[in-house]
Every structure is written in C-alpha cells, then in structure tokens.
C-alpha cells in the first residue's frame, strides 16, 4: 500500500478550534501542502491575522508572527524587507483584509511586495459573532444587519480581487472556492502559483478563497457549501483576475 493522502508536514498536530465544517481547515491544509511541495517549510514565515484564524500560528508548523487587526501586509513587508530570500505569506479574513486593513493590503500590492496573501472570504465576521462584513452580500443577514444587508444604508460588498487586479504592483490575483473536491484541487493550484510567483520575485500575489461559515450563516456545513455556490459565486466570480503573462502583454 502506498499513501496517497496524509497530513502535510507544514501543519502541526494541533486540533483546530474551528467549528465543524468550517473551510478554514481546508484552506490551512492547502497552504501547508503547497509549502511542503515547494520544499520551503524551513524558509517560510507566516503572518496570522485577527479574526477566526487568529490562532493560525498554532496550526502552521512554521515561524509565524501574529499581526494586529488588518496589519498583516505591513508586518509581512517588514519581514520581507529584512529577509528578501525567505517566503513570506499572510493569511487574512474579509474583515481583516477588506475593512480594517484595506490601506495595508492596497499599498502592499501597490509596492509590489514580494509576498503571498491568502484571503479567506466568508462574507461575515465569524470570531466576533456574525456581524456584517465588507463582503456580506446585499440581503444577507448578519447580527448587525438583522433584516439583511440594506444597500441603501449599508452599501455594497467589496470585490477585493477585482480592485487589486487593477494595481500595477500585483503579479497574480485569483479567486477560487473550496465547495467541492474539484474546486479544492483548483484552489490548491492557485495557491501554489501564488507562492511560485513570490519565489520568482514577480510581485505581489493574492488568492481569494470563498469560504463558508456554517455557524454564523445558520446552516449545516453541507447546506453552507450549497449557499456559497448559489449566492457567493454569482457575485464573486471564480477565476484568475491577473497573471504575470497578462502583465507582460
């Protein structure tokens, strides 16, 4: 018998604190698998955000820094400038990256920082109790939008990948999902590419991963996957927004 699937070395043995069916676990694993496959575990420094994945430093078997809310790209910039030959990545949620940390992500991208960002978009604040996120869909219920997000008073969800793709300093921007095994495979490919872009020093790379929050969406893990597919993907279309080839044209 040969093993075709086992726990990647870039994950610690720790049990995660994530709720059952939360896709953070899948995305952590994909990042760890990519780091293993690129054989850069001992050269990688990760930055954990504030939000549900605040404890990511306990789960990645890597050197890690915990950043203040939204500041991961600034912290990553500091690390990368000190160690330009190391692999530096941030792992951030939608509140972290698209609300409180908007300035930091935009300017890290604009500077073309040679870092990789994994942006987990589940359209809600999980850790603090299901509040409206910058990516909450119009009509989607949240504890701070009890009747659903009202575009008139609460505005519209932000498409960060599209915004970032317009910035010259970005080399690779892709949006993926993890709602079925095929999409998980594609997500992994994109994450691998985002790390390779950094290794090739081509510029800033970001992968937005559409993710579920069964607990705060009030759905079972399976129903949440279906909701993601039917509601999030139409607003947040999957695909590569920008690649280095496009830059060269």
């Amino acid at each position: 018998m040969i093993t075709v699937f086992e726990r990647p070395k870039s994950l610690t043995p720790a049990k995660t604190h994530y709720c059952p069916g939360c896709t953070h676990g899948i995305i952590h694993r994909l990042v760890a698998e990519v780091i293993d496959e690129l054989d850069v575990r001992e050269d990688t420094i990760g930055i954990a955000p504030v939000g549900c994945s605040v404890l990511a430093y306990n789960y990645f078997n890597l050197d890690m820094q915990e950043a203040a809310h939204g500041r991961a790209p600034a912290v990553a910039t500091g690390i990368k400038r000190v160690h330009p030959d190391k692999v530096v990545f941030t792992y951030q949620g939608d509140g972290d990256l698209a609300a409180i940390g908007t300035a930091e992500i935009i300017h890290a991208a604009a500077r073309g920082e040679k870092i990789t960002t994994i942006f987990v978009n589940n359209a809600i604040y999980g850790m603090t109790g299901g509040q409206m996120a910058p990516t909450t869909l119009v009509g989607q219920e949240a504890t701070t939008a009890p009747s659903g997000r009202n575009a008139e008073t609460q505005g519209y969800p932000v498409r960060m990948s599209e915004i970032l793709a317009t910035i010259q300093g970005t080399a690779y921007i892709a949006r993926v999902s993890v709602h079925n095994p095929q999409e998980v495979a594609k997500a992994k490919k994109a994450i691998k590419k985002a790390f390779q872009i950094q290794l090739e020093r081509k510029g800033f790379a970001l992968v937005e991963v559409l993710s579920t929050c069964p607990t705060n969406w009030g759905l079972t893990p399976l129903a949440a996957m279906k909701w993601l597919q039917e509601n999030m993907i139409p607003y947040y279309p999957l695909g590569v927004q920008k690649t280095p080839e496009e830059v060269e044209v």
């Binding site: 820094q65 912290v75 500091g78 690390i79």
Partner: peptide
C-alpha cells in the same frame, strides 16, 4: 520605506523587529 500611514509604518517595524 515610506509607508502608507503611521499605523502601517509601526507594523512594518513590528515585522522587521520580529524578523
């Protein structure tokens, strides 16, 4: 490095110092 804000600057200092 000229940062986008004081907030970003001190967090860059955090990262660099931690490195």
């Amino acid at each position: 490095l000229q940062a986008e804000s004081e907030v970003a600057a001190i967090n860059m200092v955090y990262g660099a110092s931690g490195a």
